[in-house]
């Protein structure tokens, strides 16, 4: 099976106050289409850096990231834009994920308006479809982020990520900032979407039980390296590495 994303010996270094910080050290990973990959790790593991590289927002200092065989770093503006049409992203903080001056509808339709250049009536239709898909009631679309709860905003964030019908959805700690009962709601929304849609999901989280609920494949990261990887069952039920075992034992 041809990989959707191929991460080959990727290294990413940051320079802070003259010191070098190795966020990713020669990471290699293959991500197949239509699967859900869970990336688990604590702070400093490099998982968020990896997310940024996968979104094409930063380039690796060494190594390559290939999307369907094409090097992300080598893409010109046009190809990069085409890549982004197939990408949806959801972030950790729902309140900060939306422009506070825009209504929810305006935020959700942003890619339709400026990338796909869809006409107004069709946009309205697509936004409502996406909202229904994530269980977001229509009347909330005319409201502003400050008026809405974390759960509602995170649903809206998922709707916005899906509006262009992407092939790849990257979720960076999608439930960490939410109350427990709301986390469960969002996890169910994501699971339902995963079962219904033909998409690749990459979920990054430090919450192993949550990842276990969603992922097919798992990758455990630590200090910029991949410590263990495999199917969910392999990784979580028969962990090979000490660190993985420790991480599992720490899950309350």
């Amino acid at each position: 099976m041809v990989s959707l994303l191929s991460i080959q010996d990727v290294t990413r270094v940051y320079r802070l106050h003259g010191k070098k910080i190795w966020a990713l050290k020669e990471i290699s990973l293959e991500i197949s289409p239509n699967q859900t990959l869970g990336i688990a790790g604590e702070s400093g593991s490099g998982k968020s850096t990896l997310a940024r590289l996968l979104m094409g927002l930063e380039k690796p200092d060494q190594g390559k990231i290939l999307y369907k065989g094409n090097d992300l770093a080598g893409m010109n503006k046009k190809t990069l834009r085409a890549f982004r049409r197939h990408l949806g992203v959801v972030f950790q903080q729902p309140q900060l994920s939306f422009d506070p001056r825009w209504t929810l509808e305006r935020s959700i339709e942003e890619p339709l308006r400026f990338i796909a250049k869809t006409k107004k009536e069709r946009r309205s239709l697509l936004v409502r479809e996406a909202a229904a898909q994530v269980g977001l009631s229509e009347e909330l679309l005319t409201m502003f982020p400050q008026q809405l709860s974390g759960g509602q905003l995170q649903r809206a964030a998922i709707a916005r990520a899906l509006i262009m019908k992407p092939e790849l959805l990257i979720l960076d700690e999608p439930t960490s900032a939410l109350d427990i009962s709301i986390q469960a709601q969002i996890l169910n929304v994501l699971r339902e979407l995963k079962n219904k849609l033909q998409m690749t999901f990459i979920v990054i989280s430090h919450d192993l039980p949550a990842l276990s609920y969603l992922a097919d494949q798992m990758v455990i990261m630590r200090n910029g390296k991949v410590v263990e990887s495999g199917t969910k069952d392999e990784t979580l039920r028969r962990p090979q590495q000490e660190y993985t075992k420790m991480l599992l034992a720490s899950a309350l």
Partner: peptide, 26 residues
């Protein structure tokens, strides 16, 4: 630094448009 700016960049919105639509008003 706000995630909504990153979200727009990840969508592929041009920097100029982001500056005009999001950064400047805020």
């Amino acid at each position: 630094q706000a995630p909504y700016i990153t979200a727009s960049r990840a969508m592929g919105i041009s920097s100029l448009r982001i500056l005009y639509n999001h950064v400047l008003p805020n």
